[in-house]
């Protein structure tokens, strides 16, 4: 697995020993097992993450108490080659409701052999989240914002 990143995007890729159709199907239909569970915007533990496999669908977490957090919209869905979802989460891991302030994630599946697929992921337009955030927003200015930010910063810096 490799990663390269430009200023406003994150790129990652991996290669798996399965046909492209299988890779695409597993990625989207079993997304529940792929998304890191610790990233949870709900107040309760996540029971399930659902990827609605159609344009106009959502990607959402369903909490153990039935609450739902829709954090991505399916923008393009072209099995078994690619899909694009929006990323409606701001840098404080809160839901962003303004689509102009959302970034997007494209995942491409490229057959490199009959039983091999390269998966390229690009999370781009991160700068769309930027304006306002660097200038400071209510969340940043509040007492709660700073300790939370610094905790993450510390974790990152210590390589946790």
């Amino acid at each position: 697995m490799t990663s390269t990143s430009t200023e406003t995007s994150v790129r990652r890729e991996t290669e798996v020993a399965v046909p492209v159709e299988r890779a695409f199907a597993v990625f989207t239909e079993k997304f529940d097992g792929i998304k890191p569970r610790e990233h949870n915007l709900l107040a309760v533990p996540i029971a399930e993450t659902v990827f609605e496999t159609r344009v106009g669908g959502s990607v959402y977490d369903r909490g153990e108490d039935g609450s739902v957090c829709r954090w991505a919209r399916v923008l393009e869905f072209e099995p078994p080659h690619r899909f694009v979802i929006s990323w409606d989460i701001d840098p404080h891991w809160q839901i962003e409701t303004d689509p102009d302030r959302c970034s997007e994630v494209e995942v491409r599946f490229i057959a490199t052999g009959p039983d091999r697929t390269r998966v390229e992921l690009e999370h781009r337009h991160l700068d769309r989240h930027g304006p306002g955030w660097e200038r400071g927003r209510d969340g940043v200015a509040s007492e709660g914002g700073w300790p939370l930010y610094l905790q993450r910063f510390t974790e990152l810096a210590s390589g946790a």
Binding site: T14, V16, I34, L121, H123
Partner: peptide, 17 residues
């Protein structure tokens, strides 16, 4: 996000194989 997607792709690779 790099860490997030890194973990996601690791999970994917394990799951699919």
């Amino acid at each position: 996000l790099d860490q997030f997607w890194g973990k996601a792709l690791e999970n994917f690779k394990r799951l699919v194989e």
